[in-house]
Nucleic acid binder design. Structure first.
Lengths: 107, 107
DNA sequence: TTCACGTTTCAACAACTCTTGATATATTGA
DNA sequence: TCAATATATCAAGAGTTGTTGAAACGTGAA
């Protein structure tokens, strides 16, 4: 992940609707969810859902696949992990004080 | 860290000048740096540096302390760590696929 | 006091973001 | 074919963000 990818990813995380979409999709895992279902889950109109899904996808955080009438969105888990790594390694230079705050989450 | 704090933090990370400030201050550690020195380091005019420093501070990512004529800024390392934890735990529900991408960073 | 220094604040402006409602495109089933 | 469904796109509007240069504020030194 380079800086402009990270900037796009952080920008994508600055909206509560998009955070809600991300949370919903994380729980769906590899199954993913259709645009319509996501819109209902986060109480967004179709065009609003499409706008935010497009933003998340542009940022590389989601993938999409057309399945008959529907478009299935999924979290790109590797990209999310890479973003966490970028935040720790590049933004914080792997600082031990930062790591110590969240080392407990990792095995 | 709650959602609105996380949103503010992510917003603060969406600008290359602010990322540069953060990187500079991380390397300075507990010593920190003055607003003027930071402005020079990231090639920003005084008012531009003040604007971005204020944004980062409002987001909780920096602390500031007035020392005679200068204002010393420092990274809030605990807050940065909490942001990483929020990203992994709250945004990604602690998903194993995300963790596995960056588990190597932690010991 | 007077001056210079470091920093912040302000107003103006351009650029961007989000929302809304309407419309367009594609796909399926009757 | 026609109608219904799922999604994306568009234009317009309100609100927000980042930049600039000027001005103001506090502090320390002469």
């Amino acid at each position: 992940m380079n800086e402009s990818q990270a900037l796009a990813a952080f920008s994508a995380l600055t909206d509560p609707t998009r955070l809600a979409i991300l949370r919903h999709l994380v729980t769906k895992g590899a199954e993913g969810a259709s645009a319509g279902e996501i819109g209902v889950a986060v109480t967004a109109t179709p065009s609003r859902a499409a706008f935010h899904l497009s933003t998340l996808k542009q940022a590389g955080l989601l993938t999409s696949e057309k399945v008959s009438r529907n478009v299935i969105y999924r979290v790109d888990f590797a990209r999310m992990g890479a973003l966490v790594a970028y935040l720790v390694e590049d933004c914080c230079a792997g600082d031990a004080r930062v790591k110590s705050c969240c080392a407990g989450l990792f095995g």
